[in-house]
Structure formats: structure tokens, C-alpha cells
Amino acid sequence: MKVCGVELKGNEAILVLLQGQEACFELLDHVTRKITLKDSDCAAEVSLFRKAVDDFMANNRVEKILIKKRAKKGKFAGGPDTFKMEALIQIISGPEVVLVSPQALATMEKKRSISFPAPLLKYQQTAFLAGVWGLVHI
């Protein structure tokens, strides 16, 4: 199974591709590590973001998308652009989209003592965890 872990931060969707099964998976190398929503108030830019995500998922034959959930209110609430990006990703036709809580990711990381692969960049670690969660729990 091929999955894409996603973390939404600011105006960027951070992406990590993984393939395999629960105990045996590999990090897939891909050129696009982030997709940026340049201006969330401009309909043309929002459409470009959606098309870029749609093309990325289709070109990489992604079967499931795992997005790290953001809080809707409180100190760690996600920004408005992240919710717009989440909605745009959720309506992409094709792959199933699953939202994963930060608590679920932290629990899995502790239980499985996950180590991050060398080619993974620091800012991709949360997206990587979301992808691993998808391979382990779905």
C-alpha cells in the first residue's frame, strides 16, 4: 500500500510518501516535499493548490492520505489556511483521507520506538509519523 503522510503548517502541506505494510515499509524518494498555498484569499491560487495536490497524489498513485489533525481552538489551534488546505485535500477524488490526532501519533511513536530514516528532513518528521500510523492502523 502507498500512503502519503501530511502535516499542515502555516500555508504549506508537508508531504512524505511511504510504501509497504505494518512492519515492513520504505520511505519513497520524491522531489515535491511541500506544496504551498500562496494566497488563500485568491480563488486562482486556491485552485492551483488543489490541482498541485491532486496531481501529486495521482502521479504517485497514493492510496491513502493521512493528515495530522490540528486543534480547532485553544493555544495550539491551527490557522485558517490549514483548515482550508485540509478541506481541499479531503475533496480530492481517489485516495481515502484520514485525520490522525497528535495524541495517536505520540502514542504510536512511544510504543514502536520509531527511528527516522536518514534521508528524511527534520521538518518532515510529523508527516512521516502520520504515514507510518496509516500503514500500522489501517
Rank of each mutant, 00 (worst) to 15 (best):
D29H: 10
E7T: 11
I14R: 13
G74C: 09
A130V: 09
E12G: 02
Y123N: 07
E109F: 01
F25E: 01
V31S: 11
I35A: 05
A87F: 06
G5K: 04
G5T: 08
L15K: 06
Q103Y: 09
S115E: 09
V31R: 14
Q21K: 15
K34T: 15
V53K: 04
Q103F: 03
A118W: 03
Q90T: 01
K111S: 07
Q90F: 04
F49R: 10
N59D: 13
Q124K: 14
E45Q: 13
E63D: 05
V6K: 12
L18T: 09
S113D: 14
M57F: 15
F49W: 05
V97D: 07
I65E: 15
H30W: 00
A13F: 02
T126A: 05
S93N: 12
F56C: 09
L129T: 08
E12C: 10
E96W: 01
K34P: 08
L27E: 01
V98F: 13
T107H: 12
K72R: 12
E45W: 05
F83E: 03
T32N: 06
A52P: 06
K84G: 01
L37T: 06
R33A: 04
N11W: 04
P117K: 04
L135E: 06
K84D: 06
A127C: 09
A23P: 08
D55A: 05
F128S: 02
N60E: 08
V100N: 09
G5R: 01
R33Q: 14
P117Y: 03
A44N: 00
L37C: 11
I35R: 04
Q90R: 13
V62G: 14
N60F: 06
L15W: 08
V97A: 10
E22G: 07
C42Q: 12
G79Q: 07
V16D: 08
K75F: 04
V98Q: 13
S115K: 02
S47D: 06
T126L: 05
S115I: 03
K122W: 02
K64A: 13
G10D: 14
L105C: 08
A130K: 01
K84H: 05
F128R: 03
L8I: 11
W133Q: 13
R33Y: 03
F128G: 10
E26N: 13
V97N: 04
K64F: 12
L135S: 07
C4S: 08
I89K: 07
I14N: 15
F116W: 00
C4W: 02
E45G: 01
E22V: 15
K51N: 14
K9G: 03
E45N: 14
L48I: 00
D55K: 06
A52Q: 14
I14S: 13
S40K: 11
K64P: 10
T36V: 14
V3L: 10
V16C: 09
G94Q: 00
D41K: 12
H137K: 15
V46K: 07
K72E: 12
T32D: 07
A130E: 00
